[in-house]
Design a protein around this nucleic acid. Structure first.
Lengths: 347, 347
DNA sequence: CTGAAAGCGCTTACAG
DNA sequence: CTGAAAGCGCTTACAG
């Protein structure tokens, strides 16, 4: 494998000059640059990233931290439970990758769990393997966040419900998304809409509730406490149980705003069992638009929260933070949009 | 940030000794080792991975190469089409992560596309960022594979249909999986079973066909050419169209063996539209058991191909290859198993 | 605009 | 079992 010395020798310049060329410095004469680039091409030289990292303190690696609580035990995923969280992270991850395409950064991943007040740092940061970090989704503790800030390493929070003051964060706003669903449902003539909320960090859960209430208010519809249904876990079964209990109390909604596709499908399974047809007798809109929504029968009309765009935007954001360490923190909610499928019928 | 020098000074030993301790060498006296370890703990020393990599030619990074054709344009995923591929990779990826937990390896990812005869190598390898590589899923070209072998970098192939002679490969055998589905369907009294094949590399497609034929044969059932349905793309819509065409030709299967959950759902949507009930009138088993299977209504009985175990096993395999570069190549098919849900009814 | 020199933080023979 | 020395392949002031 050729080194910078080989290039220098062959091009008849010094190592320093080659280095400047590699790093796109303006200090090199056009002619020299071309010469060096030709030699690099010829002998197929690629800079050794370790050497580069050692002397320049730059790794050209960016880290993605998947918060561990969000990956079920031993990071394995079970299909019938909250797979969607891993999935959600994966969509964001894909977005980050695409946002980084064309740059010379690679992505290192680490599953990490910050245990309460203990302020351990991910290995990626203590070993200096990265120039910056994406923190994907909750849960991160305040202690973790401040320990991270102290290192001076640039980082950005990205995911559902991870808005944070004074820190770069790119996120989806559940309030806005649920409100969008409510507007669509009320616009299409629904008057008895329940919220099927999921088990998730209080922040997101509460945001959904706010969006729900706002949607009711805007349409002049009354808010009923028990029409905001809370399932006890983040999966289809829990949603099934919660919705069933709600239904058996005698409540008869004409529409459901669900916290995600999994919850929606839990409710749909119950409706299927008791012979209530979607969308003929009851409409459903799912927030988040996870992959199951398009495959449901009928396909679920959903509020898509653009997870890929979220990741891509986070990539741009981190890149900028690295370039301009002192630019003001960016806190951006990615606006959701409706995906019209077949689970809503105007009344 | 403390360096190895700080540790050496404080412990009153030489740098070399500290280095030996860090690398778990047996050459250090027990007493010295303890002393050094205490100091490391005290001053919170973490070896700089770049320095280590530079001198030892070891990065403690492993690469995951996602073959690019398998990630739809610009690596973004569209929900209604072949999301499942990215998903499948993600499940494997999760398995790899868990298989690496507890080791001191990190994982770097790169989306890569090997263009035909051109034998470019992923940046991760040319820049020497990794000690080994996971090649996740097809398609890789023979040229790519041989270029990779020439580098001497340890690597393992992992995924659906990536068995290869003389190369470490951990994979699922579609033949075995479809056969399992066929056995279950014939065992439960089905006599008219069609195969809903998906659009995928010929290898996998053909394997499924072989498993299908073998299943028929074992049950003494005739093989009918046109009962092996081939959809034109790897998504639910294509499966819908293909199954519909099959049905409209007048064919009336009592069961479907589907290449994956997406295909199964495509067929189910058509059946739903024409009022044929699953599983009352027709049974379905989906191969692969992707995340949609558990959420389908009725939930799909599926052949799970253990993607996570596949990833974990690949991790062990690569680790071993790095330890023992000359051990014989391992080629392991991960045995599938049935997940019983609600889409099969005995006849 | 270019080159000589020092240094980044480790590992690895080698000598003792 | 331990230490002194050289070296891994780059970058970065600094001098010219």
């Amino acid at each position: 494998m050729p080194t910078i010395n080989d290039v220098a020798r062959r091009a008849g310049v010094s190592r320093s000059t080659v280095s400047l060329v590699i790093n796109h410095s303006k200090l090199v004469k056009e002619e020299t640059r071309k010469l060096v680039e030709r030699v690099i091409e010829e002998i197929n030289y690629v800079p050794n990233s370790n050497a580069r990292g050692l002397s320049a303190r730059v790794t050209k690696n960016l880290g993605v931290i998947f918060m561990k609580d969000y990956l079920p035990d031993s990071t394995l995923i079970s299909y019938d439970s909250d797979q969607h969280i891993g999935l959600c992270s994966f969509n964001i991850f894909n977005g980050i990758m695409s946002g980084l395409a064309g740059t010379d950064y690679s992505l290192i991943t680490e599953a990490f769990c910050c245990g309460g007040e203990n302020a351990d740092l991910p290995r990626l940061v203590s070993e200096k393997r990265v120039d910056g970090l994406f923190i994907v989704s909750r849960p991160y503790s305040p202690a973790f966040l401040s320990a991270l800030r102290e290192t001076g390493l640039p980082f950005v929070l990205v995911g559902v419900d991870c808005r944070e003051e004074g820190i770069d964060s790119i996120y989806a706003d559940p309030e806005e998304g649920i409100l969008l669903a409510m507007e669509e449902l009320t616009r299409t003539g629904h008057r008895n809409i329940c919220l099927l909320n999921s088990y998730s960090p209080p922040g997101a859960r509460n945001s959904r509730l706010i969006g729900y209430r706002m949607g009711l208010e805007l349409a002049g519809l009354p808010f009923r406490e028990n029409w905001s249904i809370r399932s006890s876990a983040n999966n289809g079964d829990a949603a099934y149980q919660a919705f069933r209990a709600f239904w058996e109390e005698g409540n008869r909604p004409d529409a459901i705003a669900a916290a995600n596709g999994q919850s929606a499908l839990g409710a749909m399974r119950y409706l299927y069992e008791i012979g209530v047809r979607v969308p003929d007798q009851i409409s459903i809109i799912a927030y988040e638009d996870s992959s199951v929504c398009g495959y449901a029968i009928p396909a679920l009309t959903s509020v898509n929260i653009r997870k890929e765009e979220m990741g891509a935007k986070a990539a741009k954001c981190l890149l900028r933070r690295i370039r301009e360490p002192d630019c003001p923190a960016e806190s951006a909610a990615i606006p959701p949009y409706m995906v019209f499928r077949n689970s809503v019928l105007p009344r």
